[in-house]
Design a protein around this nucleic acid. Structure first.
Lengths: 126, 126
DNA sequence: CAGTATCCGTTACGATACTG
DNA sequence: CAGTATCGTAACGGATACTG
């Protein structure tokens, strides 16, 4: 492992890097977790919105659309009036909940370390 | 757990969300892993750059500076000519390697699922 | 209630050229 | 070799108003 031989685990298309992409989109992992936390792995739009403090309607829809396109969740529309839309984790979605829960769990167990890291926002370097 | 009672695990300042911030900056986790993969948890600038295909000099420096500021790594400058700079994981840094390795490991074990998700870039919706 | 469309600011990121 | 400075772009993401 000499300094001239990069052992690069980080090729552009390697698995780890693609997992990271999942977390690159701010809300994706949170949606996954929220759905997972529900008994049946499903929730209506409003519930999701309320479960994710700070998300805008636009980002919620956009994230859900992207996830649907990726096959992470299904969209069930009940054409009542007013409409009731439900989002449900797919098989693939349930799979990706795993790494999310991994991080989630680590965070809960290491809140102290998180307090050391970036104690308060806006202290990068003035 | 009625639909009107958000069980929000996702408060703005909750632990999980702060962990996610670590992965929000594209290169941070990769730097952590790369350093961790080295016997002594340290590496010179050039090695890091070569280990992270695609990173620009700017982002490398910026990421390293941010991480230094956050206390994730130390910067050791050897004022020779030409200069030799070494980056080394701190105690805190070694701690945050954990969630990174968690994701990394999951990715390796689930490459098949990753192939299903986003088969090829640029297929969002034309 | 769910979704769309538009406007707009911020930031992440990359390419390049230059200094010590 | 390491780092800085500058420029430009693309994407993220929020606010708001409107439709069914």
């Amino acid at each position: 492992m000499q300094p001239g031989t990069p052992d690069d685990d980080w090729r552009e298309d390697c698995a780890p890097r693609r997992v990271l992409e999942l977390f690159a989109t701010k809300w994706t992992s949170m949606v996954l977790h929220t759905l997972h936390a529900r008994h049946d792995g499903a929730a209506r739009t409003g519930v999701l919105q309320r479960s994710l403090p700070g998300i805008s309607k636009k980002m919620l829809t956009q994230t859900l659309r992207d996830m649907e396109g990726s096959g992470l969740l299904d969209r069930l529309v009940r054409s009542t009036m007013p409409p009731a839309v439900e989002y449900r984790l797919t098989e693939l979605g349930r799979r990706f909940v795993e790494p999310v829960e991994l991080l989630y769990g680590w965070g809960r167990d290491n809140a102290d370390a998180l307090d050391q890291l970036v104690p308060r926002p806006g202290s990068r370097r003035t």
